[in-house]
Design a binder for these strands. Sequence first.
DNA 1: TCTCCAAATATACT
DNA 2: TCAAGTATATTTGGAGA
Length: 365
Amino acid sequence: MDRVIIHVDMDYFYAAIEEREDPSLKDKAVVVCMYSNRGEESGAVSTSNYIARKAGIRSAMPCKQAKALKPDAVFLPVRREFYEEVSARVMDILRSHADSEDSFEKISIDEAFLEISENCGGDFEKAEKIGLQIKHDVIEHEKLTCSVGIGPNKLIAKMASSFRKPDGMTIVKPEDVRNFLNPMPVKKLWGIGKVTEEKLQQMGIETLGQLAVYDTQELIAQFGKNRGIWLKKASSGIDESPVTERSSADQIGRMASLKEDTRDDEMILALLKELVDDVMKKVDLRRISFRSVTVTVIFSNFRMVTKSRTLNHPVSDRSILQETAREMMLQLLHESSMNCRRIGVRVGNLQQNIGQKSLFEYFER
DNA sequence: TCTCCAAATATACT
DNA sequence: TCAAGTATATTTGGAGA
């Protein structure tokens, strides 16, 4: 039986949720921003609705620039925890349409893959009905629209869902894959970003059709074995990766801007402590241990450096995180004379705490 | 020189 | 001029066999 995969992408998710919560926003430009703690309008755009996009507003654009483009837009700060709650409910709806519990893969706060090969018996007509049902359920329960892509693998499903947005649905049958991909600019391929796009352009490759017939050895020479082969396969629409539930994130981090560019240790360490506390909160909440710690510094010229350390054993201890992070941060800072703009801390190599109770629980008994 | 894994950087997404 | 935050993927580099 042919595989049939659905990719669901929520439309302008954060801004759509804000619209839903406050209907008076409905016909206005809505821009959801991540503000740095430098007050005023310093920050970047996270998401915006389609009215704002029409004015040229894009993700990652400085908020100031967005405001200049559309002064009457409504600017709102991100409320990530709230969006996470909505996301969890949406994901439950989506999961219910997959072949089984394991045939579901959440890939971000607003996107997921579902394998429906069995549910539709490999029949794309039936797959279309399932797609419509999903859209219907999401609207009904959460008053949010989504765009759906259906294809013979994850890559095609993912690209199909972004083909018609918002509130769209695109079905690409196996025999249509070539025609679907060939005319697209390489940038559209899932996994090709700005860097790869530019490199390909220098090689005279602009469309996926051109990439798909390009000499494999040459691609390997330019991009390395792994990436070279991937480019060749992906541009031809080949992707065998399975839909599998991925274990919850195996890194947790926080990053934030300093009030002003500085290289004052006191100021930087004070912010670091806040970030460490936030990370520990999440670590405690999820009852996990971490074995690696990474600190990040972004200097005033936007150069980014990181330092990380792997501990001998997994721990979930605030003071160890605090001390490790502090030590590495000071090392990084003293390696450069540049002012510091943003810093971050991250823990990785996570594993679930098993069989051991927290001190609190111990005394609760 | 191969392989493993930790460290550091690159990339992608909203 | 203005430029956030979270997470994963890939590459690099060093140690041991």
